[in-house]
Simulated scan of single mutants.
Amino acid sequence: MLHSHNRPVERGKVYLVGAGPGDPELITVRGLTLLRQAEVVVYDRLVHPALLAEVPATAERIYVGKTPGRHVLPQEAIQELLIDRARRNRIVVRLKGGDPFVFGRGGEEARALAQAGIPFEVVPGVTSAIAVPAYAGIPVTQRGMAGSFAVVTGHRCDLEALALDWSALARIDTLVLLMGLRRLPELVRTLQAHGRAPDTPVAVISNGTTAAQQCVLGTLADIAERAAHLSTPATVVVGEVTRLADDLAWFHPEPTPSPFSLHPETQPSEP
């Protein structure tokens, strides 16, 4: 039996918890322990409802999900919310999809907490950058095929701010693009312009690790057209390892509606 006797759950502390890539069973033991003791849960759009069912009925649940162009709360307001609830001596869980520190803005929240003098703990989550390809039968590394991989954001604001070295990225064996579905035509053109061959195999996986998972295979030359019907969230994998998808496919979801829907937009309440 797993014990966490040396890691107590503390009041007045914020726990930045990764919920994993979609399948609720992929949350960590520590993450589930914290959810079951939480007094406040601040959660994102892609958090599976089954995880919220683990939260005590008496806990305050605050939805702060974001969709493209529409945020329930600005990032700064989310950070102030976490600080406020911790100062009220609550057990606060900030539940984020995937891993908090992989394009989850967890670093921004941790910095805000540190600057405010609020104790916090980071509970890593299974990132979609690795788990979603795995559920599609795609290892991001493979002996003799891919000895390197990189994870890149497809979000416009991040790309413009970071000025990524696409010439270097185009030479990486396996490139995983997160949050890039809407900009896929531009991204594949950019890779080709920086030396990646048009016949490079590509996979796009929508709603990965869930019952609504779909995987479309193609090349840099045609994937934007092939994957145009897919919905977010989606993970794009560029590289030879995507050729393994047919042989290694092990996850066969039943065709059901996507479990990802907007939760009721719960505004912060005054307990």
Rank of each mutant, 00 (worst) to 15 (best):
M1D: 14
L2N: 14
L2E: 15
L2M: 14
H3T: 15
H3W: 12
N6V: 13
N6T: 15
R7N: 13
P8F: 13
V9S: 00
E10V: 04
E10M: 08
K13A: 06
Y15R: 01
L16V: 15
V17Q: 06
V17G: 06
V17R: 02
G18P: 06
G18H: 10
G20W: 01
P21N: 10
D23A: 00
P24N: 10
P24Q: 07
T28K: 03
G31Q: 03
L35P: 02
L35H: 07
L35M: 08
A38F: 00
V42I: 01
Y43E: 06
Y43K: 04
Y43C: 05
R45I: 11
R45Y: 14
A50N: 08
E54C: 08
V55A: 03
T58L: 09
A59S: 03
R61N: 09
R61K: 15
Y63C: 07
Y63W: 05
G65S: 00
P68A: 04
P68K: 02
G69P: 12
H71F: 08
V72G: 12
L73G: 03
P74L: 04
P74G: 05
Q75A: 01
Q79N: 13
Q79C: 10
Q79P: 03
Q79K: 10
L82R: 01
D84L: 09
R85E: 00
R88M: 08
R88F: 06
V93S: 01
K96G: 07
F101A: 15
F103K: 02
G104W: 01
G104P: 03
R105I: 01
E108K: 02
A112K: 05
Q115I: 04
E121Q: 02
E121L: 02
E121H: 01
E121P: 02
V126C: 00
V126T: 03
T127G: 02
A129G: 14
A129K: 04
P133K: 00
A134I: 07
V140M: 03
R143N: 13
R143A: 14
G144V: 14
M145P: 12
M145A: 15
M145R: 13
A146K: 13
A150T: 08
V152D: 06
V152E: 06
T153K: 07
H155S: 09
C157G: 11
L159M: 11
E160D: 13
L164I: 10
D165A: 14
D165I: 12
D165M: 15
S167I: 12
L169W: 08
A170T: 14
A170F: 11
I172F: 12
I172R: 10
I172K: 08
T174L: 11
V176S: 02
L178P: 11
G180M: 01
R182E: 09
E186V: 10
L187W: 08
L187A: 07
T190I: 10
L191M: 13
D199E: 15
V204H: 10
V204I: 05
N207K: 11
N207E: 13
N207A: 12
C215F: 05
V216N: 09
G218F: 09
G218Y: 06
T219N: 09
T219A: 08
T219Y: 09
L220F: 07
L220N: 11
A228T: 09
L230R: 05
S231W: 09
T232V: 07
V236S: 12
V236K: 10
R243T: 15
L244T: 13
W250Y: 14
P253L: 01
T256K: 13
P259M: 03
S261W: 04
P268T: 09
S269M: 13
E270I: 14
